[in-house]
């Protein structure tokens, strides 16, 4: 009797100890990455927010503290909205935001137009070919982004091969100014982000049930109509994902306009960079970052809402 109770007790203690240990393990698994992300991702945002509400001053760091000790147990909290009114009031910033959205939007559209047939072709290619083509799309993704943008500098230059061919064919009399134009920025954007568009589209198209298309063909539906009635609606998820993956980073892009664009190519990523490094105006750079973040978050939420509504309707 006693020994049975003893083993029961020992087991209970053992279980308790075990669960205690796994509770510590669980705490560890959650807390370590949580702490890291909170410290290096969440807190930095709060600092950006704080600095967006402060004033510039000549020191290091070049910002006024927003909370000051006013003496006699009183803290003073001074929030300056001037950075935001400045950002919204200035034509240059508004133009930069609008231009970024336009460049990103048009680039996304072109990436979709080029990427969809590519993804379709890869998904429908026979086995071995499909693997090879898939890897050929992935390969540029793994090669340096910076160097791929740089490659266009050589191609588009005054003495570059594109101008060389055009001159030789007699299409133009003297070399075209291709580099440092908005055209070059669009080209660089579509080029750099094309793999991001193709990969989600490929996954969506590959999953498509081919018998649906056969059924449509049997019922006398023409391929073009079948594409718009069946293939496109069923791969909509891939289209959404691809557009989001291209559009979001394209809005804040810095490297492409810096290397391929002209001095008057206004994009918000470049403006934030210049405000920060060039003018050393940390508060205005922070305010611009906050506005950009709000715009992008708005887009993501809007797209999620559209998707949720579609799912409900289906």
């Amino acid at each position: 009797m006693n020994s049975v109770a003893g083993t029961g007790l020992a087991r209970a203690v053992g279980r308790l100890r075990g669960s205690g240990r796994s509770a510590i393990g669980r705490w560890f698994v959650i807390a370590v990455p949580y702490f890291w992300l909170a410290l290096f991702f969440l807190v930095p945002f709060l600092i950006v927010l704080k600095i967006a509400f402060s004033n510039i001053q000549l020191s290091m760091p070049p910002v006024e503290p927003i909370v000051t000790w006013a003496g006699d147990k009183v803290f003073q909290l001074r929030l300056h909205f001037s950075n935001f009114t400045f950002v919204f009031g200035d034509d240059l910033y508004r133009a930069a935001f609008l231009n970024s959205l336009q460049v990103a939007g048009i680039s996304t559209l072109f990436a979709l137009l080029i990427g969809y047939p590519m993804a379709y072709g890869i998904a429908r290619a026979p086995g071995t070919w499909r693997n090879i083509l898939f890897l050929l799309v992935v390969l540029p993704f793994f090669t340096s982004f910076l160097l791929r943008v740089y490659a266009w500098m050589g191609l588009l230059g005054r003495n570059g091969p594109i101008n060389g061919v055009l001159l030789k064919l007699g299409i133009v009399a003297e070399p075209l100014q291709l580099l440092q134009t908005d055209f070059a920025v669009y080209l660089g954007m579509v080029y750099s982000y094309l793999p991001f568009m193709v990969l989600p589209l490929y996954t969506a198209i590959e999953k498509l049930d081919l018998t649906l298309l056969e059924a449509a063909a049997d019922l006398g539906c023409r391929p073009t109509k079948a594409f718009f009635k069946i293939t496109l609606p069923l791969t909509k998820e891939g289209v959404f994902a691809g557009c989001l993956l291209v559009f979001i980073p394209a809005v804040g892009e810095y490297v492409i306009p810096a290397l391929l664009g002209g001095p008057d190519t206004l994009m918000i990523g470049r403006v934030v960079w210049d405000e920060f490094f060039g003018n050393r105006d940390w508060p205005v750079a922070s305010a611009l970052a906050i506005v950009l973040l709000v715009i992008l978050a708005g887009f993501v939420l809007l797209l999620q809402k559209v998707q949720a509504r579609e799912k409900e309707a289906a």
Partner: peptide, 17 residues
């Protein structure tokens, strides 16, 4: 999904603080 400019800016401000 965050633009790199924002991530970079916020991390620098953290390191300075």
């Amino acid at each position: 999904v965050l633009p790199e400019v924002i991530t970079g800016l916020s991390l620098l401000l953290l390191f300075v603080a």
